[in-house]
Design a protein around this nucleic acid. Structure first.
Lengths: 136, 136
DNA sequence: GTTACACCTTCCCACGATGGGAAGGTCAAC
DNA sequence: GTTGACCTTCCCATCGTGGGAAGGTGTAAC
């Protein structure tokens, strides 16, 4: 199967498949005589794996680790868990950061009457509140 | 005051100050005879404004809008509010996405015993579950 | 003075993940 | 044999930030 089919079956764009190969995430695909990349069921399976891992926010580097763990039938599940746990705590950190932003923004937007008058607590906050503003 | 001082007083790195100028977010700084950029209190004020807006996750483009609204004493607060509200809803979307990831990851990690045995629900999920896996 | 050091300047490159698009080769069907 | 859909590689853009080179400047100590 050519790259277009592989893309269609895996949900990963042809562009990205080539990219993943170029950064060493995937082993170089076999080529047919016309230099077209050739893919089989197992390749599509790997591509789907990558797609799902991406949808959980894993980085390319982490996916590389997960892929090699996946390929190794003897891996200790603890190794996998460790990769996932590290990623989870990254995510939780970012999540908390974003939640703080959202909370602050909601307050500011709520406080702004949002009409044609010029006074605006949003700008006042950005312009002035000392250091870690709005956490109050 | 030179760029280093401005950076120190504003919390925005010198590198970033130059960058903001180069993309037109800031007006070109005055130069002293030695070609060094010169900054005053108002500039530091603007830099802090930018830093605070960044810490609320506003994009450079949005910050440009906010800055020009801030500079205009007659702006309707509704304009500001609209920029903030759009950003908030972007954030809320990403937040929900990340929350879904976190929820799924927590479940998977919880299900993985994480020892030396090779069987691992995390990899099984990535490898197999149909389409929108793990939302169950 | 001159040497050393801290600062400034511009310019280019890198990240991470993705996409756009050009320029060119290949294959199928009609 | 031409058209159109596919494939190839290569470069560029995004967004915000930082690293670092190569070179100019300012200041302070010797």
């Amino acid at each position: 199967m050519n790259i277009g089919q592989a893309a269609e079956h895996s949900g990963v764009s042809a562009k990205m498949i080539r990219h993943y190969e170029s950064i060493g995430l995937l082993r170089p695909a076999a080529r047919s005589s016309n230099t077209y990349r050739q893919y089989g069921e197992q390749d599509v399976h790997e591509l789907r794996f990558i797609g799902r891992a991406r949808s959980l926010g894993f980085s390319m580097k982490e996916i590389g680790e997960l892929l090699s763990l996946w390929r190794d039938r003897e891996r200790p599940s603890g190794d996998v868990r460790q990769v996932a746990a590290r990623h989870l705590s990254d995510l939780e950190g970012k999540l908390a950061e974003m939640q703080a932003m959202v909370t602050t923004l909601r307050k500011l937007i709520h406080a702004c009457h949002g009409d044609e008058r010029p006074d605006c607590p949003i700008l006042e906050d950005l312009a002035g509140a000392p250091a870690r503003r709005s956490l109050s």
